[in-house]
Design a protein around this nucleic acid. Structure first.
Lengths: 150, 150
DNA sequence: CATAACTAGTTTCAACAGCTACTAGTTGTC
DNA sequence: GACAACTAGTAGCTGTTGAAACTAGTTATG
């Protein structure tokens, strides 16, 4: 048999970037389904809602900064959430371009419902790991993210 | 201060499903860029090409089975790759519906170029992990994937 | 205080994704 | 061997994404 060329062939199914893609797709499907059934939200609307829940008062721009979404998508998602009265926007007095976003009571209820579903997904993910790895998982992902971002 | 309600609030940035989403998005951007510059492929075309490279002779349906893509997308991606002469399709004699896919010489060259770029992404990802974790990473992802699929 | 450079957010448009319905080919059953 | 049930792959439709251009408000500079 011939000697390997320097280019190692990718075995797709065992290839990390591919596995991440497949995993993210599964997570997105679950999350999208939960968002839709518990509030009629699409995925980007859910992400915006969750970003505002994490840190109320965030602006659309803040959401863009912590999220892999472009500002056009966030803008549309915010508009949808405002129309459905899940968020309110408090325009800043100091800077007329900026609007701080807060959940309404209704928004909070929808958020709770979706969040508890999505937390189940996290639990399932963690259940796939050894106890010792469960604690490290968050830090490992954070590390991989920052490696690719730099 | 009030006692915590039973619903734990999600801290988005430390939430596993979210981290996976962000990571996958970074990987997809890098991969899409490499695919585009080294052959004018979009992401789904690259995935199809990689699936065929992993196991030549795969049919469009085989690709659907190992990939988080729907058959319409795969069908269009295959069509594009055939038009660009990166793949050929050998219709089966036994079953007229089936076409086995193979890379052309040109397809292989494009594949090599993109694959070596994407392998760099994998190396970066692995470099974020401790030596002991590097070996386990593939298995851990596989486990998480199968947990969500069942 | 006028103007240039910058930032927050919106809109637009082409490309792409994800359904569903459809066509063509195959297998099983009576 | 005809007809129903099934599978591989395609086509059409609608909504969403992502990039870029644009608007409106703000800051810096002379």
């Amino acid at each position: 048999m011939a000697v390997n060329k320097k280019s190692k062939k990718i075995i797709l199914e065992a290839f990390l970037p591919y596995q991440i893609t497949v995993l993210a797709d599964l997570v997105a499907r679950r999350t999208a389904a939960a968002s839709k059934t518990h509030g009629g939200l699409n995925l980007s609307q859910w992400r915006v809602l969750a970003a505002v829940a994490t840190d109320p008062g965030r602006t659309a721009n803040d959401v863009v900064a912590v999220t892999p979404m472009d500002k056009g998508i966030v803008s549309r998602a915010v508009k949808g959430l405002l129309d459905m009265r899940f968020l309110v926007r408090n325009a800043s007095q100091q800077d007329g371009r900026i609007g701080h976003l807060y959940m309404t009571r209704k928004g909070e209820q929808v958020y709770e419902a979706i969040a508890s579903e999505v937390q189940k997904v996290e639990e399932e993910l963690l259940s796939a790991l050894a106890k010792s790895d469960q604690k490290k998982a968050g830090a490992i992902f954070a590390k991989m993210i920052s490696t690719l971002m730099e």
